[in-house]
Simulated scan of single mutants.
Amino acid sequence: MLRRAKSIMILTVAIWGFVGALHNLIDWQGTLIAVKMATSMITIPDGSESWQATSNLIVVWIGALFILGAKLTTGVMCTIGSIRMWKAQGANSSVYNAAKQIALTGCAVAIIMLFGGFIIIAESWFELWRSETMLAPVLGSAFRYAGMISLISIFVALKD
């Protein structure tokens, strides 16, 4: 029963990745605007005057594609991992633990994007922590997602 729960938990991470990517694609202009708001630092008092602020379209597109690519990669890897885990649920521990590897890698991709992209780059480099507009909806969500995916990863990674 526990192995089934782990497979389903990984599947929820896959769904998170696909739903997030879908929303980014459906509102691609909104995605670009959100990234530009972070990189240009326009939501921070005098932020756009800061030396690190940029509206460079290449930087904005790299940021948006990084987010989209990480979510899609997470979705694909966690789907494959969830299926492998489901199929291996009756196998011995070594086979089952091997089946978890791609799922855990998918979770790692999500955590890298959320922590690296949102916390290190957006919050620390572009000082998004100073933005009353984006602090809770952007950084709060990234922290919440990274925390939940991390907890799922830790639970799934436990050896049988």
Score class of each variant (00 low, 15 high):
R3P: 01
R3K: 13
T12F: 09
V13E: 00
W16P: 00
W16G: 04
V19T: 12
G20T: 04
N24S: 10
L25S: 10
D27R: 11
Q29Y: 10
Q29L: 14
G30E: 09
T31W: 02
L32T: 05
A34K: 00
K36H: 04
T39V: 01
T39G: 02
M41N: 02
I42Q: 01
T43N: 12
T43Y: 05
T54I: 02
S55H: 04
I58N: 06
V60Q: 02
W61A: 12
A64G: 10
L65M: 14
F66T: 08
F66Y: 11
I67D: 01
K71L: 15
T73W: 08
G75C: 06
M77A: 14
T79F: 10
G81E: 07
S82G: 15
I83Q: 04
I83T: 05
R84A: 10
M85I: 12
M85D: 01
G90K: 08
N92I: 09
S93D: 13
S93L: 06
Y96M: 04
Y96L: 10
N97S: 13
K100M: 05
K100V: 09
A103C: 09
G106V: 02
C107M: 13
C107V: 11
A108M: 14
I111M: 13
L114D: 01
I119R: 03
A122L: 05
E123R: 03
S124V: 12
F126I: 07
F126G: 00
E127I: 04
E127R: 12
L128F: 06
W129S: 11
R130L: 12
S131P: 01
S131R: 00
A136P: 02
A136C: 06
V138F: 11
G140A: 12
G140D: 12
S141Y: 03
S141R: 11
R144N: 11
Y145E: 14
A146I: 08
A146S: 15
M148S: 11
I149A: 01
I149K: 02
S150W: 06
F155W: 13
V156I: 15
D160T: 11
